[in-house]
Design a protein around this nucleic acid. Structure first.
Length: 495
RNA sequence: GGGCCCGUAGCUCAGUCGGUAGAGCAGGCGGCUCUUAACCGCAAGGUCAGGGGUUCGAAUCCCCUCGGGCCCGCCA
């Protein structure tokens, strides 16, 4: 922020200079032999209060200094690492008058420090390290946020996520949990025989969903490119190529507003499975959520929502039929034979604000959103959507006017969308063209090369997609997507 | 894109009726050999987001700009 610095920063810079003039190094290269603070805590807990281990080897810990409590010739320093934290006990008796004074004069809260010593349990039973050597590992010029309240300003927490992370163990644990949850997801899919692939983010035409793309320019092609809005069509090309069971976890980009459940850049999982249909995918989805729910409960034992997840996501999940559920909840009859104008009037009557020229499927979506989605609290599969709503799914094998599709809902969030995939090239081409009849941006971009791919033969298959961010939100009960994405798009700071 | 709200010390927050800026933490100096949001004393720390206006006088009232939050609309 301020380059010449606040008085506090000038003070800390002056300390750096004092260390250097005394022949010390404020930013040393390494700190060998370090163990996690949790290891010292375990050993200290084995002692009785008021004692320390005798004659054993020295243990080394390192981390960020959070608070200091000095009592003249005795001091307590709380150091924090990813494993938790530990109280350091400094005493003139161990360090000598000069060493004790030097150690304390050099370090401030927020600094990265290392300490060597032996495990000790204080008289009050606090696991500690009786320090015989304290070293500065990296000086913090900026002071850390207030030690009790931490960083509260939501703007600063997003703009400077590193400050949020360094000052908040809860934030760190949340993102560690996300990382390990995604690891579990990969382990599950791998164990089911799926292969992970990475497809291109830069594409000639973003398709596979109805969304506004980001547009950019390639110097190499001397022409326009777009950022992908979906993983669907590239992964289906892999099925054409014979890869049978594939998935991708990657960022997709939609040029739209950010709110509590949407971000312009987000993580998506898509899974495609040859020679299987959407019933198979429904069973796989249940197994996946069952396993992830068990894992999140282990990862975040302090979160009530995470602890409750294994109960909530215990199979079998409820199922409802899209059309009959909507007819029942709304009192509308013979839904599939309504004209576009009738559907528009019904959607309007339900309070939906949709442009007049929207395709008929849009009005059906709105009706479902209004009458049914709020009733879906427990995990529920919604089955068999009207064809109008879904251009990439295969028509239902026995129910005219419907496609083989399910969505999974829980707590008002959409937790998955799956189809038996359309693999008839002529029908796919016709559906793309029908989309183009709709006005506005509310359609799927035509992807002629994908139709060409289908002409080489794509096996019957099923596919599934879910936003990783929402998956994390649903399993942990976190209400805002801003709390599960590390770095969000922000405006440049003024000035 | 529309509506409502917010921006005061590095951080967390007060600031009454418009009368010229306060506390805690962090930092400095001093004290304290078992504290844990340690404690006690002293001193220091401000472009009240930025610009303009009203007024004898603006953190406070009005307008504009910037940044952000929440709700609504759109996408998952």
């Amino acid at each position: 922020m301020v380059e010449d610095g606040s008085p506090l920063e000038r003070e800390r810079r002056a300390k750096v200079e004092r260390i250097r003039t005394a022949g010390g190094e404020p930013y040393p290269w390494s700190f060998p032999g370090r163990v996690a603070t949790s290891e010292v805590v375990v050993r200290a807990k084995a002692l009785s209060p008021g004692t320390h281990s005798e004659g054993g080897e020295l243990l080394a810990v390192a981390g960020r200094l959070r608070t200091t409590r000095t009592h003249g010739k005795t001091s307590f320093l709380d150091v924090e690492d990813l494993a938790g934290g530990l109280q350091l006990f400094l005493r003139v008796d161990e360090l000598g008058e000069e060493g004790y004074a030097r150690a304390l004069s050099v370090v401030d809260p927020g600094d990265l420090i290392g300490a060597r010593g032996v495990p000790l349990q204080t008289r009050r039973g606090e696991p500690s390290l009786l320090v015989s050597e304290l070293v500065l590992l990296a000086k913090a010029i900026h002071p850390p946020p207030e030690k009790f309240h931490g960083l509260q300003d939501p703007e600063e927490r997003i703009r400077r996520r590193y400050v949020d992370l360094l000052s908040s163990p809860e934030t760190r644990q949340r993102f560690v949990a996300r990382s390990l949850l995604v690891r579990e997801l990969r382990a599950f899919l791998d164990s089911e025989g799926f292969l992970e692939f990475e497809t291109a983010s830069l594409v000639p035409t973003a398709s596979g969903a109805a969304a506004e793309p980001f547009r950019t320019h390639s110097n190499y092609l001397n022409g326009p490119l777009q950022l992908r809005i979906s993983l669907e069509l590239p992964l289906k090309r892999l099925l054409v190529g014979g890869l049978e069971r594939v998935y991708e976890i990657g960022h997709v980009f939609r040029n739209e507003d950010l709110d509590s459940i949407h971000s312009p850049e987000f993580s998506e999982l898509e899974v495609y499975w040859a020679y299987a249909d959407y019933h198979d995918m429904r069973a796989l989805t249940e197994r996946m959520y069952e396993r992830l729910a068990r894992r999140i409960a282990e990862l975040l034992p302090d979160s009530p929502a995470a602890r409750e997840a294994p109960t909530r996501f215990r199979p079998p999940f409820a199922t409802v039929d899209f059309v009959s559920e909507l007819e029942q909840r709304s009192g509308i009859t013979d839904l599939l034979h309504k004209s576009r104008e009738e559907l528009r009037a019904l959607a309007r009557a339900a309070g939906a604000r949709v442009p007049d020229e929207s395709p008929a499927g849009k009005f059906l979506d709105k009706l479902f959103e209004h009458y049914v989605e709020p009733t879906l609290d427990r995990p529920t599969f919604v089955l068999d959507y009207p064809e109008l709503t879904t251009p990439l799914a295969k028509r239902h094998r026995s129910r005219p006017g419907l496609v083989e599709r399910f969505e999974l809902f829980s707590q008002g969030l959409e937790l998955g969308n799956a189809y038996t995939e359309l693999n008839d090239p002529d029908e796919q081409e016709a559906r793309f063209r029908a989309q183009l009849q709709g006005s506005g941006d509310d359609h799927y971009a035509y992807d002629g090369d994908f139709v060409e791919a289908l002409r080489f033969g794509m096996p019957p298959a099923t596919g599934f997609g879910i936003g990783i961010d929402r998956l994390m939100m649903a399993l942990t009960g976190i209400a805002s997507i801003k709390d599960v994405i590390l770095f969000l798009p922000v405006r440049p700071r003024p000035g």
